[in-house]
Design a protein around this nucleic acid. Structure first.
Lengths: 154, 154
DNA sequence: CTTACTCTTATGGTATAACATGGGATTTTT
DNA sequence: AAAAATCCCATGTTATACCATAAGAGTAAG
């Protein structure tokens, strides 16, 4: 069976004064498995940091090259937004990454970070914000439960 | 496995009196990795400098040879503009390139340059202009968000 | 069931290397 | 000869690699 590479679980780690955090070991395993790197950027929609394997961005770049027009406005905007914000974060021998000021500020993270798995991606939250968000999501799901169906995608 | 070569992140560097700027080290790494050179030209659509690996222009040229649009007027015009404007910019031992007057003027850059990653390409902006542009893009994207379906999901 | 041991992971501190940037020297161009 | 471009050295700053300790999970033995 093929090894999985899904970001899962919710892990709470300390952020030190320099902005260093241990990347959960499971996440590190994925990076090694894919021989890729972790890439993080500000979430477009939430006050949190979003991360994924660089491999995924590679795919996006490749898709754009072929699907959209080289000179299209939308492509221009999207690439600016995604790649302009994303940055590679490689971890040291002890498994830590150094988060940037920009990201920490966006996610309002000071001394504690919550890693939340999302499959191909993951998010990093401020603990309080995540608590609220999780509650919101659960309520939302319960409300819309009857109309949720598996569409075959995703 | 193949190493990735995506221009990412947003980096602010000083431009000295001679017009020298440090090319962000990640960008330099890509150049070395691909054993190519950096090529820059005036953006066709924005007041900024656009850059990419010379390799990419090679690819575009190759694509056009075989493309159905071989005789397309628009495509002809666009490539004329880009190839006519593009120039190689190699960096010195300290990693700096010397931007030309023409480019600096087009991007209204004087003493500070903002490098914005775009995947296979990157842009160089005047700080104020980029701030405005980033704002514009974020608004635009948020407005059209529902209709944007990326394969990477969101 | 409890205790001791081992291994992995997280975290704090420090040393080292890499980078951006200023200044000057040398070379090339016109 | 003057101007412009390229190269080289010096420095402050920051990120990264490294070492050491602590904490926790899991395992094996008593």
């Amino acid at each position: 069976m093929r090894k999985t590479f899904l970001f899962m679980d919710t892990i709470v780690n300390k952020v030190d004064a320099k902005g260093r955090v241990s990347l959960p070991s499971d996440y590190r395993a994925i990076v090694k498995e894919l021989s890729t790197e972790i890439v993080c950027y500000r979430s477009l929609t939430s006050p949190c940091i979003e991360g994924c394997a660089e491999e995924l961005l590679e795919k996006i770049a490749a898709d754009m090259e072929t699907s959209l027009d080289f000179f299209s406005q939308t492509q221009d905007d999207l690439t600016n937004l995604i790649f302009g914000d994303a940055r590679r974060f490689s971890f040291d021998s002890t498994g830590r990454i150094l988060l940037s000021e920009k990201l920490l500020k966006h996610a309002q993270i000071t001394d504690t970070a919550v890693f939340v798995g999302k499959g191909r991606k993951f998010q990093i939250w401020n603990p309080e914000n995540w608590a609220k968000e999780e509650k919101r999501i659960r309520q939302e799901i319960m409300k819309n439960r009857p109309s949720l169906s598996m569409k075959g995608g995703n």
